[in-house]
């Protein structure tokens, strides 16, 4: 976390922005690892083979998203309290930052998998992937960061948390169909 180096070490400022910074960190770490998520399997031919296997592609992309979440989202959820200390997160905020990340990062992984499936066939899909996924992340980021921020300020967090959970549940349920559909199109 290099944020204090760039914005200065004032503890007031850090305390104010730390929930948002943690969410931004979650988003960036998610984004960074996305372009290899399906591209490797595309290159070595596993995707072709998986597409002809009895496992439906919807399940494949769901498992891929789960694997992505376990390797990027979950560590960040676990590390959030520690990073919170470094960023001078107010004590009331810890629990809400962790809860909002826990609820929100799965959505980031699932939406990201859709972006990865869209750009899987492209030689230099990385930049395009970020461009496509960024606007799709806006609602999750807003509700997630808002819940964390309100939690840190000791305000009510129910509405943003409910919205966040709703987004996560909806994308986990529906997004795999879109991801599998674009993957099938890319595999033709």
């Amino acid at each position: 976390m290099v944020v204090p180096f760039s914005v200065g070490p004032e503890s007031d400022l850090l305390a104010r922005i730390s929930p948002g910074v943690l969410w931004l960190g979650a988003l960036l770490s998610c984004l960074l690892s996305l372009d290899r998520l399906l591209a490797l399997d595309w290159e070595d031919g596993s995707l072709d083979l998986l597409a002809t296997a009895p496992l439906p592609l919807e399940a494949v992309v769901s498992i891929k998203a789960l694997a992505h979440w376990i390797t990027t989202g979950l560590p960040l959820v676990l590390a959030a309290p520690l990073l919170g200390v470094l960023l001078n997160l107010p004590p009331e905020g810890y629990i809400w930052v962790v809860i909002s990340l826990l609820l929100g990062t799965p959505a980031l992984s699932v939406i990201g998998t859709f972006g990865a499936a869209l750009t899987v066939g492209l030689k230099r899909g990385g930049l395009l992937l970020s461009l496509l996924v960024m606007p799709l992340y806006v609602p999750t980021l807003i509700f997630g960061a808002e819940a964390a921020r309100r939690g840190a300020l000791g305000m009510g967090v129910e509405t943003p948390l409910l919205m966040l959970a709703g987004i996560s549940a909806a994308v986990i349920a529906l997004m795999p169909f879109a991801s599998a559909a674009v993957l099938r199109i890319n595999l033709r």
Binding site: L136, V138, P139, I142, F143, E146, T159, P160, M163
Partner: peptide, 13 residues
């Protein structure tokens, strides 16, 4: 879908 969702999110935010 996400654009509509963003519209509400932004309003709320």
């Amino acid at each position: 879908v996400f654009a509509v969702l963003s519209r509400y999110a932004v309003n709320f935010w």
